[in-house]
Design a protein around this nucleic acid. Structure first.
Length: 472
RNA sequence: CGGGGUGUGGCGCAGUUGAUAGCGCGCCCGGUUUGGGACCGGGAGGUCGAAGGUUUAAGUCCUUUCACCCCGACCA
């Protein structure tokens, strides 16, 4: 624990990022390339996200289930664009129990194929629809360039898979999932972003179209940590997910899949952290309140203990840091690096005057509140911190969304600022490739249909408004 | 996977022309301390990323390999 060892975020955001993960005790490297150990403090963030998102999922009537880790290679090969999209990053098992397998097994990179093989067996009638399942699990994608939380060979996520009788119903589901994701982002992580449709190049392998939530990081690069796909009938046709409707006519089901990953924790670290370390919004902070005593007299310790019990009893994630081998100043810095939203400083002064000195992590300023109604005051402070953090994210996004009306302006913005670039554009993979090669920017999403402008690249009448940016 | 860089106790580093390792922080024990990273005393801990090679002798030279960082391609 040494704050002076933390590189300045403004100097070198990459080194800052990997250091803060280690110093704040979020995670450590695993023994295998690209793998990571998520430590309790980091995992608790994931649990807070899970709790919220799992609640939304259940409210919607989607059931949790679990499907196998191993998938026969032939399953992936059934959907052409799916296997083409994933084959470069597959981990494949060829030997089991000391014997070479007849058919290699893929460690799931995503579970469409294994789940839809089962759906094909389970769905016979319109009465079986909609079929809506979700699983919380790990997936493996052998990435070339890894980074803790941002891009690991194995990562945790939730994947929802649904089958519906109509395309409209499937689209409603797809939109619902993205709404839930953006609520998690905004309400829990205090991160704003743009929701929209992916381009032909960027969409999920096997999807008819993909919705995404894109959030801008201080480096000027953009993070995508969740997507929601309209799979059309692409998978139902190859996995034979057929049902007989009320008229006795056979049709293929309309499907969606949607996932939210631990990459969102990377966004959380990057978006709010500063030169002093992590800065967590109260709604996801594993420890929302750290109580630190300035002098460990019996009166002070008893005061802290009672306060902590009261807060914990009222559902606040509070901890009394009662270590006797660390000094006051040391503890304050420790909780600062670990990003606890509020540190309550208690000494004889507070015991005497019935006030609490609260240090806000987001503003690094002290606020005095009454001990008497501590819980109420702290809940108010939480709300204030949470919304102030979201506000700064909203402002940052808006300040860094720039409009380009032609390619020269576009290149200029990429050179000077990065961030989001808003343009009129018609989706064209060939042009997207050229732009990427020349500027490193790719489409993030289509945010609106609008025929009032001309395509920034070709100058021809345009149909839509798109956001471009460099992605992580 | 391509280009560049790094690799020495948990962390940050030093180690001259080759002679089998040292510092600071941290850690453990004892004591004094505690309102923004305390101090004194006493300890533990490394064969120098890994494997091979040259040599009487390798942290230092050579080869291979691995990991991490920065920049690309792939990607949630």
């Amino acid at each position: 624990m040494a704050k002076e060892l933390l590189p300045k975020k403004s100097d070198n955001i990459s080194e800052w990022y990997t250091s803060v993960i280690r110093i704040a005790d979020l995670a450590d490297y695993g023994p295998v390339k690209g793998t990571m150990i998520i430590k309790p403090y980091g995992y608790a963030i994931w649990e807070a996200i899970q709790k919220q998102l799992d609640g939304y999922i259940k409210e919607k009537g989607v059931k949790n289930a679990y499907f196998p880790l191993f998938i026969p290679m032939s399953f992936l090969e059934k959907e052409k664009s799916h296997v083409e999209g994933f084959s470069p990053e597959l981990a494949v098992v060829t030997v089991c129990g000391g014997e070479k397998l007849e058919e290699p097994l893929v460690v799931r990179p995503t579970s469409e194929t294994v789940i839809y093989d089962a759906y094909g067996k389970w769905i016979q009638s319109w009465r079986d629809l909609p079929l809506m399942m979700n699983q919380w699990c790990n997936v493996v994608r052998w990435e070339k360039r890894t980074m803790p939380f941002m891009r690991t060979s194995e990562f945790l996520w939730q994947e929802g898979h649904t089958a519906h009788a109509t395309h409209e119903e499937a689209i409603e589901m797809q939109n619902w999932a993205m709404d839930a994701y953006s609520k998690v982002y905004r309400d829990l992580l205090a991160i704003d972003g743009y929701t929209g449709l992916k381009s032909i190049t960027e969409r999920f392998a096997g999807a008819a179209n993909s919705l995404t939530f894109e959030s801008l990081m201080p480096s000027g690069k953009v993070v995508q940590s969740c997507t929601s796909h309209d799979l059309g009938q692409n998978f139902s046709k190859v996995f034979n997910i057929k049902f007989q409707d009320e008229q006795g006519v056979d049709s293929y089901a309309w499907q969606t899949s949607w996932g939210y990953t631990t990459r969102s924790i990377a966004a959380l670290i990057l978006a709010h952290g500063d030169d002093n370390g992590l800065c967590l919004p109260p709604n996801v902070a594993p420890i929302q309140i750290a109580i630190v005593s300035a002098k460990a007299t019996k009166e002070v310790v008893d005061f802290c203990r009672l306060l902590n019990e009261e807060l914990v009893g009222n559902g606040i994630r509070s901890e009394f840091d009662n270590r006797d081998d660390e000094t006051f100043g040391y503890k304050l810095n420790k909780w600062e690096v670990r990003g606890a939203p509020i540190v309550i400083k208690v000494g004889p002064r507070e015991v005497d005057n019935g006030k609490l000195t609260c240090r806000r992590r987001d503003t690094l300023s002290d606020v005095e509140i009454n001990r008497g109604d501590a819980t109420i005051n702290i809940r108010e402070l939480f709300d204030e911190i949470q919304s102030s953090m979201l506000n700064s994210s909203v402002n940052y996004k808006e300040e860094n969304t720039r409009t380009a009306s032609n390619y020269d302006e576009f290149k200029d913005i990429m050179k000077q600022h990065k961030g989001f670039i808003k343009v009129f554009w018609n989706d064209d993979p060939k042009i997207e490739k050229i732009i990427k090669d020349e500027t490193t920017a790719t489409t993030r999403c289509k945010i609106a249909e609008d025929t009032s402008g001309v395509d920034f690249y070709t100058g021809k009448p345009a149909k839509d408004i798109w956001l471009f940016a460099q992605s992580y």
